[in-house]
Design a protein around this nucleic acid. Sequence first.
RNA 1: UGGGGUGUCGCCAAGCGGCAAGGCACCAGGUUUUGAUCCUGGCAUUCGGAGGUUCGAAUCCUCCCACCCCAGCCA
Length: 553
Amino acid sequence: MDDIPANNFLQTIIAEDLAAGRVTTVVTRFPPEPNGFLHIGHAKSISVNFGLAQANGGHCNLRFDDTNPEKETPAFIEAIEEDVRWLGYQWHGEVRFASSYFQQLYDWAVHLVEQGDAYVCDLTPDQAREYRGTLTAPGRNSPFRDRSVEENLDLLARMKAGEFADGSRVLRAKIDMSSPNMNMRDPILYRIRKVAHHQTGNDWVIYPTYDFAHGQEDAIEGVTHSICTLEFEDHRPLYDWFLDHLPVPARPRQYEFGRLNPSYTITSKRKLKQLVDEGVVAGWDDPRMPTISGMRRRGYTPAAIRRFCDMIGTTRSDGVVDVAMLEFAIREDLNENAVRAMCVLNPLKVVLTDYPADKVERLSAARHPNREDLGERDLPFTREIYIDADDFREEANKKYKRLVLGKRVRLRNAYVIEADEVVKDDSGEIIEVRAHTIPDTLGENPADGIKPKGVIHWVSVSEGRPAEVRLYERLFNHEAPDKGDNAFMDHINPQSLSVVSRAWIEPALADAEPEQQFQFEREGYFVADRYDHRTDKPVFNRTIGLRDTWTDS
RNA sequence: UGGGGUGUCGCCAAGCGGCAAGGCACCAGGUUUUGAUCCUGGCAUUCGGAGGUUCGAAUCCUCCCACCCCAGCCA
């Protein structure tokens, strides 16, 4: 693994725990709920949890926090497992499920009732809300708060047995209805939900809440450092309360770090789901989605995502990270590792009038400018080639370094040519450029000393092949689309996807494997689509454009 | 007007009483058959604000301000 040993406040805590002997083996866990796909925010959590365990010779569990069967599905479980593996992490032992601890959790609930620390409450949701009080006003005790242990035991058993209707009763901890911390106002431990669970089927009709489950699950698994995000900070007193009142086998500690908020991005499962459900994107793994699988399909690499997580650090402050940092991370990786190739997105035919019509010159070009180890590829050159329409102008100022009528330009990896005339159609559109090659300019500058001002890419008309290229841009055109309630729907970038149905690719690209990455020179980084790419029908996705510092005019 | 947090360059982030790391972004040069990469240089007399303690503070104390989270039988 290329991860740099973590150096942050959590690492400091762990190092101290290890040094003081409070902990011998560091155990962390990544606890997703299988109700959606993992996104870039989860990548940070994964990086933190697995990274810390790794850096300290411990291990990290993958545990599905499946306490709410209504929103969860096995399909999400599979997708999550695949994403974690793809990112390059291996969880310790088997995958864990909160649901496999349901019996133990129930036994502990009974234990609390027996201790007089929990009771069955018959308040309706509306009444419960009213009794709970507000942020500034204390709550009131439920009229059911003082039921006898015997009655509570009986009622809980009957809740479990399915005698009561959904939502009619709950089991609550007896803590403090006047606590300034809302989580301590007699929180709910169990609710009745007569729905099948994807793991336990119809075994249960009552399900534990996150609060009653999480800490105990950690204790069961021997998790030493239970790392979560800032919004759970208020839950920590409750997390500790349960562990203090139950005969748990271990004493985990909860620590919180700041959630990742990339600019121009949304990381709310609810909102991402809305994008999927409303067809704004093609699915959870649409290349425009900030999901792990979306980024994968877009061409992001595990190494780049891990590098990004290292770059942004782990702190307790809440901020917005510039997506430019993520873009830097992927460019850094791909610049080093992606093989170069040429692809013309907007073909304009150039006829080299001095070049024999039937000649095919087999040129060779480096696959990478500074990595000889990647070798070379064949690059056929012919009389008719395509260049990008943007790379030709009939006239231009001196800052324009491409092909101009009457001027020269270097064809990347090939000859210097000079444009002689343009051919237009009836509407005045340029449909062809006629030019000639400058002799002996393969790897050499023109003998007459007139050097071309720039270099452009090209592909042989007869030897090249058509391909579909999907150009992606940011899904949102607002820096903080997540602000406000539904405002994010108003910030969808209408140009987030544009499909080039007939781009022209050099023949070497015909061998591309799905998910293979390339740099299409002067255009950007592209990946052969994971699902749609075929040798006989190539499809490439633009991961990210090249850094472009050219200031026009 | 309850509780819990956070505030160091446009963004992320080191720093933990001795006189402001680094990265991203940006700007200016150099190299270059990718206007890419690479290389060089620039970029906070100042650490949310105001007082105070100290020979000395971003680091300690006091007060104030701003922003984030909490009133799901979601996680």
